[in-house]
């Protein structure tokens, strides 16, 4: 379980997060919705250890992880699928995946490693096909799959996903959300940041709305769908 308590973060004088508290239960998909500039990415990067918050606490399975480095967090089982995918364009698909497993490589036998990478290839057959191609030659959807595969290579329990649907075609978006559903079925917990509210509603168990750095609403998928205000603001329905 990931528990964020009264988290504050500022970029200089600009407050990006104000007393953000939220919880993401193990084995579920928790979604953070919100408009551009609401602080969603900042929140995710703070959890991943890339940004150091000015106040508040982040607990993972009861342990305060706020002062841990990104590499320590990866070891704890928290992996980030970043916004814009950020794969390594000049490295092959296979090499990208190896970098994802880097912290585990020394402990792994060759056969274990093959098992892990085959698991990724089984989940994303297209990556197997493109194994020796450079990351930069992949299409947007394939790159997103690579970014997810790369994060999975570290053997995480908790996946932080930053707008995985960004800039992808509708059909590919469906595929990505299908993958997230499968990940959940495999027992992974996901903290998902999204702008695509309609699609997120279908897969997420619990929602937090972030507005100008503050949690403005929280509830289950049903609550959210029934809330008139939310329907208007996030699902684009006319009341």
């Amino acid at each position: 379980m990931l528990r964020i308590d009264k988290l504050n973060f500022s970029y200089g004088a600009i407050k990006a997060l104000t007393d953000v508290s939220l919880m993401a239960a193990t084995g579920s998909v928790t979604c953070i919705l919100g408009p551009n500039g609401a602080g969603k990415t900042t929140l995710l990067q703070t959890v991943a250890g890339l940004l150091k918050p000015s106040a508040g606490s982040i607990q993972f399975d009861g342990e305060n992880i706020i002062s841990l480095s990104p590499s320590a967090l990866v070891k704890k089982g928290i992996a980030l699928v970043p916004e814009n995918r950020l794969i390594f364009p000049e490295m092959t698909v296979r090499e990208n995946l190896i970098v994802g497993a880097y912290l585990r490589l020394n402990k792994m036998q060759k056969s274990d490693f093959k098992f892990e990478i085959d698991k990724i290839y089984a989940r994303f057959p297209i990556l197997d096909k493109r194994s020796d191609q450079l990351g930069g030659t992949l299409s947007g959807g394939e790159q997103q799959m690579l970014a997810i595969g790369r994060a999975l290579m570290s053997g995480p329990q908790f996946l932080l996903m930053d707008e995985p649907s960004l800039g992808l075609a509708p059909k590919i978006i469906d595929e990505i959300f299908e993958i997230i559903k499968e990940l959940k079925q495999d027992g992974l917990s996901v903290l998902l940041v999204e702008q695509n509210a309609v699609k997120s509603l279908k897969i997420a168990d619990y929602f937090f709305l972030l507005d100008q750095g503050q949690v403005s609403y929280q509830g289950g998928a049903d609550d959210l769908e029934n809330d008139a205000h939310i329907r208007k603001a996030y699902l684009g329905e006319k009341s």
């Binding site: 990104p70 990866v74 980030l80 970043p82 390594f88 970098v99 880097y102 912290l103 570290s154």
Partner: peptide, 8 residues
């Protein structure tokens, strides 16, 4: 930066 959050 990417290498960093992947654990390098």
């Amino acid at each position: 930066n990417t290498a960093w959050f992947l654990g390098a």
